[in-house]
Amino acid sequence: MSINFKQIEDKLKTEAKKLLEGGKVSIVLAYGKGYDEKHPMPYVARKMSDVENMVFNEFCTANMARYLVRYPRGTKIAIAVKPADSRAVIQLIQEEKIKREDLVILGIPVYGMKNFKTGETIDSKTTCGRYNPVIYDTLLGEEVHGQPVVSPYDVLAEYEKMDKDARWAFWKKELDRCIRCYACRKACPMCYCDPCFIDQNKPKWGEKSPESHGNLMYHLTRFHHLAGRCVDCGECSRACPVDIPLYLFHKKVAKECEEMFGQAAGMKIEDKPALVNFRVDDSDKILE
């Protein structure tokens, strides 16, 4: 079975029209035409006539959950989510940034998405290893079954072979390339702090220059701010103009969190984020 992108696009349009027409939502967060077919854009439909510009194809990698916190609380929003994106929505609900009742979730069961910059299939690398959204009100297509099960952590194999010193050297080298454009944090659905710690100057946590100190401070802190919260959508890594494989760190931390707390980010609305929820039987591994 392969994914019928055209069919998803048609269903997306039909649903969007229905929701806007019925006044059930005031905006639909989905995908629209970009400057060419390979470069679709995140898109906001506000009125019926906007729906015509919607598209869905294998290059629609953007995680629309990023935009949820941009609208005033209580705005009724329909949002198109791919598997990993749906987890971001759940995580944002857990963190009380948005309310479930304000959302209409349009789930997209999908695999075979491609990075629009490189054309490479992103499945094994930067999606959370799922083919079906975890949560949805309407599914735009058929649930995907029978695809090979890939662990999202398989890509860590090479990374985990490195010892502590090699990892430190690896990250120092990778993060040295950072130009501090902050595309990673801006693309991340979980990076909603205002202001971000790196933009504060009382106290000043890190320098603005793209040099080792500040780069390490920014990225390592951000990595840890996302511990137990990262849903592995891969947006940070795709957004990065200099291709820093940020996903490796996030995945590693996510894996450890999952092992320690028996809970992956954004899987159940009733969960509390692992690192803000104290349980007596929590693992003490981190202290050892």
């Binding site: 629209g32 995140p42 130009i179 454009c181 595309a183």
Partner: peptide, 16 residues
Amino acid sequence: EKISDACLSCGACTFV
């Protein structure tokens, strides 16, 4: 507002 719906407000465009 319409043309900036998608904009993440990062600095990638200005830095390159």
